[in-house]
């Protein structure tokens, strides 16, 4: 059974998504996919996302993991031979999804939530407690199991002075930071939650 082409979704993307129009320029070379450090995690690398948009596959695109995974490493954007700001498009799509009420990947959303809470509370990230809190969202037993699995990484981080044994303290000027975060939230652009 052949899938039907539908140009309306592409138009929707061009009109609504940040830098969405730029994907017209894609010549399907695939360097973005090959350059992405998270390519093994992505269900569709950026090039395929663009193909799906072109074909009008709204659901596949909007529900894809890929558009919420981008870590802004800029490799794809720097290398794209057509100068497409791939990062902006991927973030733009994720953002458009949220606007449209499409819930992002559960894990990512939950992690984002814990991340935000911790920043709001102490003004910085505690590399020990954040994964612990996130893991515990799964439930006590699986949470502890997941945390133990991460122990070797933790030890390495400790040995490389990337993590302290003592809990992180609140930063100075936490109040000012919270004001900024509140304002950002109000503007609706600052974060996913």
């Amino acid at each position: 059974m052949a899938g039907n082409y539908d140009p309306s979704f592409a138009k929707e993307v061009f009109d609504n998504v940040d830098s969405g129009e730029e994907i017209k320029m894609c010549m399907q070379c695939g360097i973005c996919a090959g350059s992405c450090p998270l390519r093994h995690e992505m269900d569709y690398p950026p090039r395929q996302i663009f193909t799906l948009i072109r074909a009008g596959r709204r659901d596949e695109v909007m529900n894809s993991k890929a558009i919420k995974l981008c870590t802004s490493c800029y490799r794809c954007k720097v290398r794209c031979p057509r100068g497409i700001p791939v990062i902006d498009v991927m973030h733009g799509l994720a953002h458009y999804g949220i606007k449209k009420g499409i819930i992002p990947r559960k894990g990512t959303a939950a992690f984002g939530g814990e991340f935000w809470k911790m920043i709001y509370n102490i003004g910085r990230i505690d590399e020990k407690t954040l994964p612990l809190k996130y893991n515990l969202l799964e439930g006590l037993v699986p949470g502890i199991k997941s945390t133990i699995e991460m122990a070797p990484m933790g030890i390495q981080m400790f040995l490389h002075h990337r993590m302290k044994l003592l809990p992180e303290r609140k930063i100075k000027g936490i109040k000012e930071l919270r004001k900024m975060l509140d304002k950002a939230k109000e503007m609706g652009k600052g974060g996913a939650n």
């Binding site: 059974m1 052949a2 899938g3 039907n4 082409y5 399907q28 193909t51 799906l52 074909a55």
Partner: peptide, 15 residues
Amino acid sequence: VSANDELLGEKIKIE
């Protein structure tokens, strides 16, 4: 037109 879209990896139909 029905076609084999190589990059989508699917048979497609444009109506």
